[in-house]
Design a protein around this nucleic acid. Structure first.
Lengths: 338, 338
DNA sequence: ACTGGCACTCGGCGGGACGGAGTGCCAACC
DNA sequence: GGTTGGCACTCCGTCCCGCCGAGTGCCAGT
């Protein structure tokens, strides 16, 4: 379908367009890349590429610009992933190593990624769905008020305060705590409802509603925090592109504020494979000129969560992919150690 | 210095400019506000106002625009705080009442504030400095690894994982936990170092370094989390103003990413008094065209933290101040209940 | 002290001309 | 048949110019 030279031409067009941000013409191509043929020949190839939908011209008698389909081919077949320099790798490692807790790791990661790629970075918190329960703690705050603290295998802590139907003694609480932990410590979230089902039964009629309340809150917390959290950084980088702001930047900022959208963007990324979604592939009107590069990360084998960057379709894909992959690896490493 | 009519003129200029976003001329003023005098008279007053530095003209023969000094006078003496409508108040209350935990309260608050004011909203988490300790919990994660969970009177939970110099028995941990809680529960953060000073003494030579390590981590956590956390929302609202983006919006986005700057912006706000900082008063180059309206909030008497909004100097001050004040009150109320 | 009139100053806007970049096509060439 | 040089054509961006309107400052009159 596309002979070698046409692929070379497409690759050259993408590279030049990304570098200059301006439509690229046949003469400029012949000058900057030594393709060994004349501009006229390139023109013929360009006409063919346009026919096939890989490139387009903004107006008659302007240069060509890659289409989403063109970028897709470029990413899939014409370019690799550009590895980071040794210095960059070391910088990442030392920067992330200084983190004190999970929040800090995530915060540092997102800033790092934004700075490295000069784009908007998004990091999703380690997901609860695959993780297990490490400990459940119950504390009395007042006679009829209890705080539940849930610690997960990913180091995340969730807390919830609840009011109880009657006063709660320390003994009762200690009993419930012990029973709870012996049953669900080390278990997966999904299995918890079944495991605690009959936990209230041994208690007296007076105590039972209290215990039931605690269990309900526990289950509620598990469900509630399937709502993943995301953080982002580098929104100022959006201003680096073009002057057509009101139409371009605004919908992007709006999309970034909706966590639902963000999560969907990172959505399909899984650990080994990096996902690149280009322009309209995002299935979001406001992000038609935006690409997302995302990848899963995790400690050890399993994918805990995802991270990625978001920028204009005219981005440096090899470099961006390299940075995203590298950061994901180092974060996974850090998390595995702690 | 400024007679009544000149003040009326200035007020009218600010109101019209905020409404139209365009320099306002003498004729338009005479038409839209019934000041009872002719445009020529207004022109004289405007000349005086310009002389005094309250207004300025972008170019010769354009209308006048308020200066920072003009806005300052407007806020201080010419306008009040516009209270919200009953419907708005009810909407705030029900929206905030649905929150499940502290994170959720903060998240809802910031989104609410952004939507209400159509500007960028900033909410600082309840500060630790004035709050007291409600409970300290110690958990073993592995033989030589301990997790410390700190619960504060504001409902905030901080956790930290540490490695111990040797294996830690449950008995030892329970002992330390009990001693710690009996000493510092209910105490202020600032007093903790003194209170735990000699807590390691009763222990054996083997145990002492472990206990010391735990204490060190505790103190470290207290210091560490003086670094306040902030969240923001509504950055998309920045695009509502003018087309001079690259110069206007970029430095603002950059400033918003630096938490240090954000915290300083909210800085001086205290509960009863609302702080309005206009343009250059922010002492930040990139925020020369930006105003900040901030106020402290808290449950009961004391100010726990601050919130506010950030927008162009040409903002609707009375309305914004009304919204900020109202939201702060309701958040304080919600926090007091929980 | 206020008002109406008047000359003056600019910025914004539309129209027209120009130059340049780039294309498509065609005939010639290897 | 693929490749090349040449050429006419198209259109965008830009510059320049002149006009119009809004708004001002000043001054003389009430």
């Amino acid at each position: 379908m596309l002979d070698d030279r046409k692929q070379d031409v497409l690759r050259a067009i993408v590279q030049d367009y990304v570098a200059t941000q301006e439509p690229v013409g046949s003469k400029a191509l012949a000058d900057r890349h030594n393709l060994g043929v004349s501009p006229a020949t390139i023109r013929n190839d360009m006409a063919a590429l346009e026919e096939e939908g890989y490139i387009t011209q903004p107006h008659t008698s302007a240069g060509r610009v890659p289409t989403d389909k063109g970028y897709r081919l470029f990413v899939d077949r014409l370019a690799g992933v550009k590895p980071l320099s040794g210095a960059e790798r070391r910088a990442i490692q030392t920067f992330l190593a200084g983190a004190v807790d999970l929040d800090d790791v995530v915060g540092r990661t997102v800033r790092l990624l934004a700075q490295l790629t000069h784009q908007v970075a998004v990091v999703q918190y380690p997901s609860l769905t695959r993780s297990t329960i490490r400990h459940v703690e119950l504390l009395t705050l007042a006679p009829t008020r209890v705080m539940l603290v849930l610690i997960t295998s990913t180091g995340r802590v969730e807390q919830r305060v609840m009011d109880t139907p009657g006063p709660v003694g320390e003994n009762l609480l200690a009993d419930v705590r012990a029973r709870l932990n012996s049953r669900i410590t080390g278990k997966r979230f999904a299995d918890v409802p079944l495991l605690v089902q009959d936990l209230a039964e041994p208690f007296t009629a007076e105590e039972r509603p209290i215990v039931a309340g605690i269990l309900a809150t526990l289950l509620d917390t598990l469900v509630e925090h399937k709502e993943e959290k995301v953080v982002l950084a580098g929104t100022a980088n959006l201003t680096r592109f073009g002057m057509d702001f009101p139409n371009t930047i605004r919908p992007v900022l709006e999309a970034l504020e909706e966590h639902v959208v963000l999560l969907r963007l990172l959505g399909e990324a899984t650990d080994p494979g990096m996902v690149v979604r280009i322009g309209h592939e995002n299935m979001h009107e406001g992000l038609a000129a935006t690409s997302v590069v995302a990848v899963g990360y995790g400690s050890g084998q399993e994918t805990l969560a995802k991270l990625g960057v978001l920028g204009p379709t005219r981005m440096d894909y090899p470099g961006t992919m390299g940075a995203v992959r590298a950061v994901a690896r180092y974060v996974g490493q850090i998390l595995a150690e702690s």
